[in-house]
Amino acid sequence: MTHTHLDPRAAALMVLLCTIWGLQQVAIKLATPDMAPVLQSAIRSIGAVGLVWLWARHRGIDLRLNDGTLRPGLLAGVLFAGEFALLYWALLYTSASRGVIFLYTAPFIVSLAVVWRLPSEHMRPMQWAGLALAFAGVMALFGEGLLKPAGTTWIGDMMMLGAAVLWAGTTLTIKFSRLASAAPEKTLLYQLAVSAVVLSAVALALGETRVGAITPTLLASLGFQIVVVAALSYAAWFWLIRHYPATRLSAFSFLTPVMGVLAGVVFLDEPLTPPILVAMTLVGVGIWLANRRPPIAASR
């Protein structure tokens, strides 16, 4: 069943997912002193492949490759791998608070592409205004990074923007291919399996294979990334994409930067600067506007 709006169940699930994704950057940062970021990403995909495959087998999901999903599945996997290679690497240069806001420029790309391809998922002027406000917040934050003399923050910011483009490409590949009718677990397996190979190769090629002490923090971070983020949250996200409008989901996902900023401040003692506060405010208002239902006309 496909819904035209987000019902309470979908909204509650999106709040939970946004909280999990907001914590993801913090988990990566906490583990970085003990393990190279790209290696973290590769291990995450490898571990999650096993969990998702076992779950899919338990549920009796058809995992055959001759159903028209192989080609888009491989494409989605490559895009997914590129996204997370950039995301993990970017956190060497920028903070988790900033990075999560830049990553969530992806909904702009998704919304524009979906409206162009699917006129039935049109957006009203108020929704466009909401997306514009959120975009203004992101740009204000980017401007702050550019104005810092001799800093490298902007490098991480640009990497996060690149990750956002690849994330949008993954979402659109799923939405407009045979993957749209495939089981969420199968879609996720394509991405995890391909990214496990690609990210491992990237880590070796870049010499990103550093492993320090095996600390409780490292193990907890990897466990969170593998089980909660890569296995559970992405399966739920792909289920939502199949059953709810991509424009509504993408706009609502702007809540993640707010969660990410708060997590960075609480767990990493990152500064809560005025531009970050402005960006959070604009993003929050943008979510509200983009998800407002049209007023019901009064009966005569």
Rank of each mutant, 00 (worst) to 15 (best):
M1A: 14
H3I: 00
L6P: 06
D7V: 12
A10H: 00
A10D: 05
I20C: 13
Q24H: 11
Q25W: 12
Q25F: 14
K29A: 12
P33N: 08
D34E: 14
A36D: 09
P37D: 01
P37L: 02
G50S: 05
G50E: 07
W55S: 10
A56Q: 01
A56P: 04
L63I: 13
L65Q: 06
G68E: 01
G68N: 00
A76G: 14
A76L: 11
L79F: 15
F80C: 08
A85L: 13
L86T: 06
L87V: 14
A90N: 04
L91E: 11
L92Y: 05
G99E: 06
G99M: 08
L103A: 07
A113K: 03
V115P: 01
W116A: 15
P119S: 12
W128E: 01
F135Y: 15
G137F: 13
M139H: 01
L141Q: 06
L146V: 13
K148I: 15
T152S: 15
T152F: 13
T153P: 00
T153C: 02
G156Y: 06
G156M: 10
M160S: 07
L161K: 09
A163V: 09
A163G: 11
T171Y: 10
S181P: 00
A183Q: 07
A183Y: 04
K186W: 05
L188I: 13
L192H: 04
A193V: 15
S195Y: 09
V197Q: 06
V198G: 00
V198Y: 03
V202S: 03
L206F: 08
L219H: 09
A220Q: 06
L222I: 02
L222M: 12
V227W: 00
A231V: 12
A235R: 10
A236H: 07
H243N: 14
P245F: 07
A246V: 03
S250R: 07
A251M: 02
A251V: 09
F254A: 11
T256K: 03
P257W: 06
V258Q: 03
E270D: 03
E270L: 04
E270S: 02
L272P: 06
P274S: 03
P275G: 11
P275F: 01
V278K: 04
V278A: 15
A279Y: 08
M280I: 09
L282G: 00
L282M: 01
V283E: 02
G286R: 13
A290K: 04
A290E: 00
N291K: 07
R293I: 10
R293T: 13
P295I: 08
I296E: 15
R300I: 09
